[in-house]
Structures are given as C-alpha cells and as structure tokens.
Design a protein around this nucleic acid. Structure first.
Length: 897
RNA sequence: GGGUGCUUAGCUCAGUUGGUUUAGAGCGCUACCCCGACACGGUAGAGGUCACAGGUUCGAAUCCUGUAGCACCCACCA
C-alpha cells in the first residue's frame, strides 16, 4: 500500500487467485460478516439451506450470488446485515445416498437396526456435510458463519417436535388411512409435491371380462393390467345405454376368477376407452372414492417394494412390471385381450428416486391445510409479501386455493421422528408426547392402566424434510422454542428470500403458512425467484446430462468476481438463465479492465502527495462536471433498480459507467499532455475519488477486486475496509443536463472526425485541421472553451469554431444537429466517395423529415397530441431542415470542385 | 384439460403508465489499429418491415381480439 507504485510492479492482468483468499480471510477474521442485534435497522436473509451432503452446482452459484449482492449492499447502506447460512438434513435425499453407499459395501438397510443405520448416516454427514458451505466461501458469500445451522441439530429437531405437538393440539394434525403416493424404491410415502408427472408413451389394454350367466362379456380398458388382480368391481355410467342391462349383474375377473359386482357411477366417462372402468380401490385414488361410495372390498395386492403380495394370488413376489407382462400373456392365452392401444398419458415419478409412483392406501400422518393457508394466501395477494417477479402470484394463488392436506410422515429413519407413542394392541391407541416419560404418563392417563415404558412404542416414521425447513426463518434464531427471544424479535421478519420457483410450494408457501401460524407475522418481505440455469441448448443443467460446469473450476479460471458477473449478467428475476462460459469471460475481462484503470491511475501517483480522501473538485471543468453528473445519475438509477430487484440492470449500468464513461472518455481526458509526464496532483486526486465511488458501487457485485483496489488506492484502517464503506449518496444538484448535452455533442463531433479518418484512411497520428461551424455564439464559445478536449483526443493542427465558417475546398464534412464540421484533407480525400457519404446522410435525413412532416400535417395529431409532443416534432422538423440545408450546400460545393 | 408467460439484430435479452431522433445493449461478425492502463484492449462499421392477421387510436414493439409456434406450472380421466 505504498503511495506510489511503478507500473511494472502491478501485473498487466488481474490475478484473482492471488487476492480472493486473502480478502475473504480478512473479512471473516475481522468479523465483518457477523451480526449481533444493535440499534441499527436489521437486514436479514436466511439461506435456502442446501442438502447437507450436497455439492455446489450452478443453481447455487446464481442463487447465492444474488443473495450476496443484496446483503453486501445492505451492509454498505449502514444496515445491520445478517445472512444466516446452514444446511438441510434432506431426509429422503440423504437417506437414499446412504442406502446407496451401504449397498456398495454389501449392506442392505434391512440388515441394520435403526440406530446402526443412523450411525452410518451421521458418519456420512460428518464426512461430506458442509462441503458446500466451504465452497460458498470461494464465491465470496458474506454469510455470518458463526450462525451456521443444521436442520437436524438438537435445537432445531426439538422445534420441529414442538411444532408437531402444537399443531396436533390445535387439531391440524391427524392420522388417517388415505390414498397416498408410494415410492417403491425408497419405500416411503411422498407428498403430492414430491411427485413429478411426465408424459410417456404407454399402452391401453382392452380386456374382456366375462359376465356371470351371460354369453356376452364386458370390455374394460386399463393401462395397468396387473391391478386386475385387485379388482373388486366393474363400473359404467348409469345413463350409458350400452351397458344398462349389465348393471347389477356379476363380472368375473380374468385370471383370478373372482366374482365382482357391476355397478354404475357418474364418475365414468362413457366417451373414454370402452366406457367401462375396472375398480381397484386399493391402487387408485378415484377407484378408492368409488369403492367407499359403493362399499366395495379393498384388496391390497402390492408389497412395499412394488412386488405382488400374497393378496394378489398370482405372480406373487414378482415386480409389478414383470407381473404386467405375465398377465398380458395370460390374458392373450385366454383370448381375453382384445386390443392394445398406443396412447400417451402422464405418469407420476418420485422426485428423488425417479421410481414410478404407486397410489397406495396407507396409514399416514397428515396436516390439514385449508385453515392454515388462509393468511398466507391473503398476505401474498395484497403484497404484504412481495413476489419478484409478481407473475408467480398467480400460480401461488392457484395452489393455495386448491391446497390439499399435507402427508407429513415418511417411512424413513433420517429425520425428526414422529412424537407419537402407541400402547395396547394394534396401532389405534396412541398419545402425542415430547419425551418417553411424558408419553408413559399420558398413556397411563388415557388408557387408565399402569403402563410401563416397555409397553409403549414410538412411531417408527420420521417427518417430511419440509416439515422442518418450513420453520427455518424462525428456528435459526431459536424463535420457535422461545417466541420472546431477543434475537428473533430483532431479525424477524427477515427481509429478502432468494430461491428457485421450483420450491415455491414445497418451501416458500409453507414458510409463509408457519410464519403466520406461529408468530402471526410474515417470515420475509420479498421473495426473489431466480431462474433455472440451463445450458445453451436450453437443457436444464444436471449431473446426469453432464452439462453442468464445475463451479469451483470455473472460479479458478475466471475468478469469483468474473463468474459472479457472468451469472448476474443475463438473468432477470424469474427468467431462465442460459449459461454460457462466455459470460464469465466477459466478467473476467471487465475485472481486467478495471484493474488496468487502477494500474493507470497508480502509475500517475506522486511519491509525497497526500491525495484528498473526498470527492472535492476545485474549478471543475466540463469533463469533471460531466463525470460527476453521470456518476450521480447512475447512483440514482442503480438504487432504483436494486429496490425493484432488477439486479442485472443495476450491474449493467455500473458496467457501462465504468467502461464507457470512465475508461473510454474520462481517463483519456485526464491523461497528461506530454508523453511520460504524470497527471497533475489535483487532477489525479479527483480521478482517484471518482474511481473510489465507482468501486463502492461495484463492490456488492465484484467484492474481491474492489476490496483489493480499495486497499491499494490509499492506506486504510481495518474499519475502513471496502466491505463496510458507505454506499454512494445521490446528489441531485450534481446532475447537470446542460453539461451532459454539451459533452455529448463533443463526443459526437469526435466520433464523426474518427469516422472521417477511417473512411479516408487518415492515421490517428496524422495531424488534421478541425473547423466547426456552430449554430450560435453561445455554442461557439462553449466549443472554443473546450478546445483542449478535442486536442486531447485527436491529433489536431488548426482548430476553429465560428458561427460563419465557409467550407474549405477538398475537405470532408459532416453535420451534427445543425453543427457543421469540416476536415480539410488536401490530397487525401476521394471526392466521389465524399459526395456519396454526404448523399447517404441527405437520404437518411430526408426519410426522417418525411415521417416528421407526415405527423405534423396530420390534423388529428396536431389537435389531439399534447402540446409538448407536438412542439417536439416541430423542433425535430426545424433541426432536420436546418441540417439538410447545410448538407445540400456542402454537396453543391463538392459538385463544383 | 386448466393456468401463466414468451415470440424484438446471427445469439442472449432491454424497451417502465402508447408520443426525445425511421427500436437499444452485450456477445458474435467486418475493417483498421500492439497509440507509454488494458489485444482479457482501442476506433469505426454492417445487421431488425419488433411471430402473423385484424382492431382501438391523431399516433402501437408498447393496448384489445384472433392465429401459429415455444416454454413452464397445476390437475384423479381409466
């Protein structure tokens, strides 16, 4: 951090790997990430806890980059920013991984006791757990690591149990035999949300059932012929003329030969298939309903693993799909398979194991949702909780309005065990209790007998993962167990939640529900939905497709800052992100550009000079005023964009301010006149101050390079680090439209001169004369005053700005909003080419003038449009006419040459 | 089957309540340039009848209707 740095001391390319770890450690060790309640306004974000054994993927990268941008900016705004990290035990996902791992070692879950299995699971968790949190550090995530939580640690476990008991006491939780989604692979029940429906090609089998006492039969259609084994009725529509006579008669189930009634129910659609439905109450939701209504027998023909049970009688022990093949063969043999129709239908798959879901009648625990969900629906619809983008309100409402009871029990071991204790015979008698002792007591009370611990047994099942994560914004602050806890009162409601729309129902909706139920308050104020990260072919990135880059490698290659920019650049909220490594490259290039701007300023530093630590400009020239104006304009719009969560737009504006305005124009204009000379102290001082403001704006997006440069620019105390620098304040008085207009005009003139050089192959080093014929004295004066700007950026011999200049012979010219510029090019100009150039411009302007005139000659427009709009058109007309007249004059002279 | 959204330059997208140049940006492309911050760079360019067809309006990429295509979400049609 010396005051003067020789150019050769600073590498030409920014090397992120050298600085990232250094600054991350610096931030963490100095407690910048840590938050404790104080008198400041709180700003809180809870991380969507990744699976404890998960590995960082591109979705996490996007999600956590966005969170970090929000958190870092809040910190700079002077808020007490707290970003709570943690992991989720992810019941089914982790258990599946452990089962898989054990299988490789030749151990099956069934061989183990619950305790033995859990020991393996904890071992696995300790080994792989938290890798992902470590990886997040590389990204620069400014989480309060001292607050790291895990959903299965004691406090959080206890909170989940308390929650269960409270909801049970309030009458929301019940146990019941219901048709649920059964995953035969994981051998557990799933909630409706965990079932994904996919359209697939399948076969619709038309099967002939004999009717007792008739020669004729009845034909049903089914996609799952193996369930014939469990049929207990055949059903037709009551008004269906074709089958009217058969109702009340008895059908004989093929293969098994069981006699079942033929019944009528309006549920049946006469148009579909054969208009006859086989009824299997144990294996289909609708059939179950019909079965209840008509009091039909229920035959459960499937084992937990999806094989045919004893009750099926045939193909016992065979997998359901094997059984399907066999029964189709047997039906064919018996001449009862009439037709096999190719159809497409939707089949449910397990979100976790991808196994085909079997509807199964099963005794499970449920949470009643209709009452609970009311405040959660209302407060999203009235924007008490805002969704970004708001379009997701629609699907949220739809889901909430049609919400069904939530199946919360899972036949797994990894998770919070259901606090239900059974006593006596069977499973009908139970008590809900937090501990075994309490359970014994309650059971004694309820049964009236003196039960012992040995005579009661706890439910074997655990709770759905989401039944713990829906409490996350409360439990991370111990808020569930202790509602008056000082911490939760300070941090809750949290501010922003950043997550994927995929888990809107799994998680977001349920957090809102539990928040209102248990704290009477929303859990967060804003939900930012990120998009799904896809590859260039629009395919979702996934391990199995192998199309997902390794984020760690990516960061090694482009730097964490570069990757962050890459992630942010093309992803407005809710839109899918077509990830392309090129975006990271662009991010890296941007870092390098900034680095070199810094390099340039550094090499101009003087040894013994103290540069001002505030942006104060004495005798500001046009360029200073313009830069100041652009800076403030950008501060204001960045604030606006950030407040409406248009993060990519905010970044774009900063990017353009730095690259286009600061590097391409401002720096070029402060360069010393003489080669090798240094920029005067006062000029450099201003430039450094501007640069510092830019670094502040950029810091939330690119934390590493900005801190690195910030610390290089001048010596800083620890508490003056970039990470806690004050976010730039908008100064409306600094925005000057007239300065910006004048500077823009100069920019356009310079571009035009460059264009002339390019057209006539005049090298940038060759001196040219620049003559400007301005519209009025005021403008002449302004241009004359800023002659130095032209000279700085162009190699100019004679410079003249006047109000009555004549076009010199053999010169190239152009007209910019009525201002003529001439560049004499004796011997270099090709007059034919120049005529063509001028004619092209005349044509363009004539086309434009025509459209303006069209508007103005339209009476409707002149009469109805607001005055200022009409006036603007009139001004355009005048300006264009003026320019055209001048161009035509130029053309005439060219023709005379 | 229901719902939501999308269709603007070769690619990815902006375009805020209809009216500031005959629509903008980044990447890519073309030409010229290693000028003492940066070739991970500079300068100048080319490139779009805003999916299609109607309508409302003085005026539409922007509002309405329809058509086509795409995407996602939800749903118990065998």
């Amino acid at each position: 951090m010396s005051k003067s740095t020789a150019l050769q001391d600073i590498p030409k390319h920014f090397d992120p790997n050298n600085v990232e770890e250094k600054w991350y450690t610096f931030w963490e060790e100095n407690g910048f990430f840590h938050s404790e309640p104080d008198e400041r306004e709180s700003y809180t974000v809870v991380i969507p806890p990744p699976n404890v054994t998960g590995v960082l993927h591109m979705g996490h990268m996007l999600n956590n980059t966005i969170q970090d941008v929000l958190v870092r900016r809040a910190r700079m705004l002077g808020k007490n920013a707290c970003w709570v990290p943690g992991t989720d035990h992810a019941s089914i996902a982790t258990e599946a991984k452990v089962v898989q791992k054990l299988r490789k070692e030749g151990i099956t879950k069934a061989d183990l006791t619950r305790k033995e299995f859990l020991d393996h699971a904890w071992e696995w968790t300790d080994e792989h757990g938290g890798i992902i949190l470590q990886q997040l550090r590389k990204l620069g995530a400014s989480c309060d690591w001292e607050r790291t939580r895990f959903t299965l640690e004691d406090d959080l476990y206890e909170a989940v149990i308390d929650c269960f008991i409270e909801l049970y006491d309030r009458g929301y939780i019940y146990r019941g035999k219901r048709m649920i989604n059964w995953d035969p692979e994981a051998q557990t029940a799933l909630s409706d949300e965990e079932v994904l429906h996919r359209e697939v090609q399948s076969k619709l089998y038309h099967v002939r059932y004999k009717v007792k006492g008739e020669d004729d039969g009845i034909t049903i259609a089914t996609t799952r012929p193996e369930t014939i084994l469990a049929d207990t009725a055949v059903c037709v529509h009551p008004d269906d003329e074709r089958y009217k006579d058969l109702v009340g008669k008895t059908a004989i189930i093929p293969v098994v030969g069981r006699e079942v009634p033929i019944i009528a129910d309006e549920y049946v659609d006469p148009e579909y298939g054969t208009g006859c439905l086989k009824i299997t109450p144990a294996h289909d939701e609708n059939d179950y309903q019909i079965g209840q209504k008509h009091d039909l027998e229920i035959i459960d023909m499937l084992n937990a693993d999806g094989t045919v049970s004893e009750a099926g009688q045939f193909y016992v022990g065979k997998d359901r799909f094997e059984a399907r093949k066999l029964i189709v063969k047997d039906l064919e043999k018996a001449d009862q398979l009439l037709e096999v129709e190719e159809i497409t239908n939707k089949i449910g798959y397990s979100e976790r194991t991808d196994a085909i879901i079997e509807p199964r009648l099963s005794l499970q625990w449920f949470c009643k949702m209709d009452e609970l969900s009311k405040p959660a629906l209302e407060n999203v619809m009235n924007d008490e909780i805002q969704f970004h983008p708001a379009k997701f309100k629609n699907s949220y409402r739809h889901w909430m309005e049609n919400i069904r009871d939530w199946c919360i029990s899972r036949q797994l071991w990894w998770g919070q065990r259901i606090p239900a204790w059974y006593y006596g015979d069977g499973k009908d008698h139970y008590v809900i209790a937090k501990t075994e002792d309490e359970a014994v007591e309650k059971a004694r009370e309820k049964s009236g007998s003196s039960l012992t611990k040995e005579q009661i047994s706890q439910d074997e099942d655990v709770l759905d993962t989401w039944f713990s994560s829906w409490l996350w914004p409360m439990t991370v602050f111990d808020g569930f167990k202790d509602p008056d806890n000082e911490e939760i009162n300070y941090y809750y409601p949290t501010d922003d939640l950043v997550t994927a729309p995929e888990i809107m129902f799994f998680w977001v909706a349920r957090m809102i529900i539990s928040g209102y139920e248990f704290r009477g308050e929303k859990p967060f104020s804003n939900v930012y939905y990120t998009g799904i990260v896809r590859d260039k072919k629009r395919r979702k990135m996934s391990k199995s497709l192998g199309n997902s880059p390794d984020p760690i490698k990516l960061m090694e290659q482009y730097g964490a800052d570069g990757v962050r920019v890459g992630m942010l650049f093309s992803s407005p909220a809710g839109n899918d992100l077509l990830f392309d490594e090129q975006l990271c490259e662009q991010g890296r290039n941007f870092a390098n550009k900034i680095w070199n701007a810094f390099r340039f300023l550094s090499m101009n530093k003087q040894e013994d000079v103290e540069y001002a630590d505030k942006l104060e400009i004495e005798e500001a020239n046009l360029v200073d005023r313009w830069m100041l104006s652009r800076l403030n304009e950008t501060i204001e719009s960045v604030n606006k964009e950030m407040e409406s969560f248009r993060i990519n737009e905010a970044l774009r504006k900063i990017y353009s301010l730095i690259w286009d305005d600061f590097c391409d124009w401002y720096i070029e204009l402060i360069k010393a006149d003489e080669p090798g000379a240094k920029i005067p102290d006062d000029r450099l001082s201003v430039a450094l101050s501007f640069f510092e403001e830019l670094m502040k704006l950029l810091h939330p997006f690119m934390p590493f390079i900005t801190e690195e440069i910030w610390q290089h620019i001048r010596p800083r105390k620890t508490k003056e680090a970039m990470i806690v620098a004050q976010w730039p304040e908008f100064d409306g008085a600094a925005v000057s439209e007239s300065d910006q207009e004048l500077f823009t005009q100069i920019q356009r003139i310079i571009s035009s001169v460059r264009n002339i050089r390019a057209e006539f192959n005049v090298s940038p080093n060759d001196e040219i004369d620049l003559l400007i014929n301005a519209n009025d004295e005021k403008s002449v004066e302004a241009l004359q005053q800023n002659e130095w700007v032209f000279r700085k950026l162009q190699s100019i011999g004679e410079f003249e700005a006047k109000a009555d200049l004549q076009k010199p012979k053999t010169s190239a010219s152009s007209v910019i909003e009525g201002t003529e510029i001439f560049v004499p090019l004796e011997g270099l100009i090709d007059l034919d080419k120049e005529r063509e150039r001028v004619e092209r411009e005349i044509n363009r302007l004539e086309g434009f003038l025509k459209s303006v005139k069209g508007k103005l000659s339209n009476e409707g427009f002149v009469n109805n449009a607001p005055d200022d709009v009409v006036q603007r058109e009139r001004d355009k007309q005048e300006d264009t006419k003026n320019s055209l007249q001048k161009l035509k004059g130029i053309l005439n002279e060219l023709n005379a040459e």
